[in-house]
């Protein structure tokens, strides 16, 4: 027993060396790494596009990290990432030094529980609901029940686009629930017949067809669907973009050309987004 202690210590000492050995490069050719960070809405799509890209370019490794659109823009600017992902168009002051390449379109739709009789809201009604001027569904043609307002957490592109479209300040919104990602919002609405939320139309369509008890509301009598976003009639739409500096590296340029090519169109549709017109 007593003799074992030094043996253990020796083992502990050489362990890092053993682990270090495995990290030595196995392949002869150098591997180029392409780092992409940003929007959690775009990331799953880019991860899939990245896999297809890697299959065509075995010497390139695509590394996708999520962190929100603001992070994507900041990382592309500072050079931490080769490409940033953003689920919104660039702000005017961002276009001075950055370049955005649209890879797909997405819409933002208002959702309620499937049991809610309300099917359409006007822009003014949405503003009244979110600023707390209307607090009962009855005045909107629904049941006699309080409205549970679901808002997005600070820093999300969905929130920015929603506020911008309805000309609201976030501090003016009287929310009952603040959510993180789309799925959290959909689960909240599915479990609460009085709730109203706004989420990615792609995600909502996908979940509603899968049997989740939610429905997308019409906005000013325009149905919220992938078709109306595609033909431009639905007002709340946004581009999903890849952001780089004005002069991207050749590797980043190759990837963006690939991500906007018809080779990835089926992946875009698979993720319930609207592909670029071919």
């Amino acid at each position: 027993m007593t003799k074992r202690i030094p043996v253990l210590l020796v083992l502990l000492a050489i362990l890092p060396a053993l682990i270090g050995c495995q990290e030595s490069p196995a392949a002869n050719q150098p591997i180029h790494k392409l780092i992409i960070t940003g929007s959690s809405t775009v990331a799953p799509l880019i991860a899939d596009i990245g896999k297809r890209f890697e299959a065509q370019h075995p010497d390139i490794r695509v590394d996708v990290q999520t962190g929100g659109s603001s992070r994507g823009v900041a990382d592309a600017r500072s050079g931490i990432a080769h490409i940033g992902m953003a689920s919104r168009a660039l702000h005017p002051q961002e276009t001075i030094d950055l370049l955005a390449t649209t890879i797909a379109q997405d819409g933002i739709g208002l959702i309620v529980h499937a049991d809610n009789p309300v099917a359409n809201l006007t822009t003014q009604q949405v503003i009244d609901i979110y600023t707390g001027k209307v607090t009962n569904w009855q005045s909107l043609g629904g049941m006699n029940a309080p409205i549970v307002v679901v808002n997005k957490a600070e820093g999300r592109a969905t929130l920015e686009i929603f506020l911008h479209h309805f000309h609201l300040a976030n501090s003016a919104i009287k929310a009952d629930v603040v959510i993180g990602d789309n799925e959290h919002g959909i689960k909240t609405v599915a479990g609460n017949p009085q709730a109203i939320a706004y989420v990615s139309i792609g995600t909502a369509t996908y979940d509603a067809t899968a049997g989740v008890p939610i429905k997308l509301l019409q906005l000013n009598s325009i149905p919220a669907s992938l078709a109306t976003v595609q033909n431009g009639t639905f007002p709340l739409s946004r581009p999903l973009t890849l952001v780089t500096t004005k002069h991207p590296r050749p590797l980043a340029q190759t990837f963006m050309t690939f991500a906007t090519s018809p080779h990835v169109q089926n992946l875009v549709i698979q993720h319930s987004f609207i592909p670029l017109p071919s």
Binding site: T66, G67, G68, S70, R71, A74, A153, G155, R156, G180
Partner: peptide, 9 residues
């Protein structure tokens, strides 16, 4: 922190 950290700059 959990809600906003990934989105904050």
């Amino acid at each position: 922190m959990a809600l906003e950290m990934a989105y904050a700059v």
